[in-house]
Computed example of a mutant assay.
Amino acid sequence: MHPALQSYLDGKVLLLDKPLHWTSFDVVKKIRILTKISKVGHAGTLDPLATGLLIVCTGKYTKKINEYMGMEKEYTGSFTLGATTPTYDLESEPQNLTDLSQLSLQEIHDAPIHFTGDILQVPPMHSAIKREGKPVYLAARKGEHVVLEPRPVTIKEFVITKIDLPKVYFKVVCSTGTYIRSLANDFGKALGVGAYLSSLCRTRIGNFLLGDAWSMNAFEEEIRSLIEKEQHLPAIESSDIKMADQSPIE
């Protein structure tokens, strides 16, 4: 590890804006490569098709990961109405196309009330939840039917911010463990037309805001800048140290 990056080894909490198509582990791996530090972890997975705030801890602050994971989350994004997908998002092809002509705007605005508060939510079959030590998405990809039990989650706020059919834009504030993909699927069921998650951005975790996060490019530039600055610092000669020690005290 480069001496300029000692603070990362000691421990830092990094706020990063996860790029589209990156996995959360891709971000962790990139930080390990840039800093040459192995003790790096993230506090809450974002799917590859989601963007937004990812908390990454290094050094001794990895002990705080569970604390950050338990914090309230805020998301914005869009559902596409009139179809479903097996993964509940754009990772798989839309199917079961449905006509939206009989759907009113008022119905769309009213639907979130059914999913606000303490609710039971069934996670997607295509998720990293483990059964018998293996992620259930592996079985789902093989076409095996996986039955998952409903889990208690809390959705503090769920509002429709814009309607541009077939897309519906939303804001959600929820507890950890909430699957927005499942919320999209359940929202479509409630309206009788089907829906899938077409975009998602995590904008807040606890009091940590996306607006304060580094882009991956900016973070990489910062690390390279720290290293370059140290490399260009003038070397301290031993004679300089000796002369400074012998200077009279005024």
Rank of each mutant, 00 (worst) to 15 (best):
C174M: 02
A140P: 02
P86G: 03
T80P: 01
G188P: 04
G59I: 12
V172C: 03
G133D: 11
I223D: 01
Y196G: 08
V122M: 02
K73T: 05
K171A: 09
V56Y: 08
T116L: 01
L15M: 05
N185Q: 12
V136P: 00
D110I: 07
V122E: 02
S247A: 14
V153I: 15
E93I: 15
F187Q: 12
S239H: 14
C201N: 08
H232Q: 13
A140R: 14
D118P: 00
L46W: 09
H2T: 06
S182F: 11
R204N: 12
I249C: 01
A111Q: 14
G82V: 12
S215N: 08
A218T: 06
I160D: 04
S175I: 09
T45C: 01
K36H: 15
N217K: 13
T176A: 15
K134A: 11
S104A: 09
H145C: 00
I241Y: 01
C174R: 10
T80S: 07
L15D: 02
T176C: 05
F208H: 15
R204I: 03
R151Q: 15
L200M: 09
R181Y: 09
G194W: 14
S7M: 12
K171G: 07
Q6L: 08
G41P: 01
G192I: 11
I160V: 15
V168D: 06
K29M: 02
L34F: 05
M125C: 06
I113F: 10
A190M: 06
N207W: 09
Y61G: 00
L233E: 13
F25L: 02
G59C: 05
S215E: 05
V146D: 04
S175A: 13
G194Y: 14
T98I: 06
P123V: 08
P152N: 14
T51F: 09
F25N: 10
D99K: 07
D17Y: 12
S127H: 11
K60H: 07
P152T: 14
Q6A: 12
W214Q: 03
S38G: 06
G41Q: 05
L120K: 14
R131Y: 05
Q102H: 13
K242Q: 11
I113N: 01
Y137G: 01
G143D: 07
E91A: 10
E149H: 14
T178G: 08
I65D: 04
K30C: 01
A195M: 08
Y61R: 13
Q106T: 15
L15K: 11
V28W: 09
P86K: 15
S182E: 07
L210S: 06
P135L: 13
S101G: 04
T176P: 00
S198V: 14
V40L: 06
D47Q: 10
K167H: 04
L90S: 11
E72S: 11
K242D: 06
Y196T: 09
H126P: 00
F170S: 02
Y68M: 06
G177D: 03
E67G: 04
R32H: 02
P248F: 15
G143H: 06
Y196E: 03
K167P: 00
V147I: 11
V193Y: 05
D26L: 12
A235Y: 08
L197F: 11
Y61D: 10
E222V: 04
S104V: 09
S7I: 13
D110Q: 15
A83K: 10
H109W: 13
L46G: 03
L97H: 13
E220P: 01
Q6E: 14
L90T: 15
K242G: 00
F170R: 05
A140G: 04
A139G: 03
S38Y: 13
N66C: 01
L14D: 10
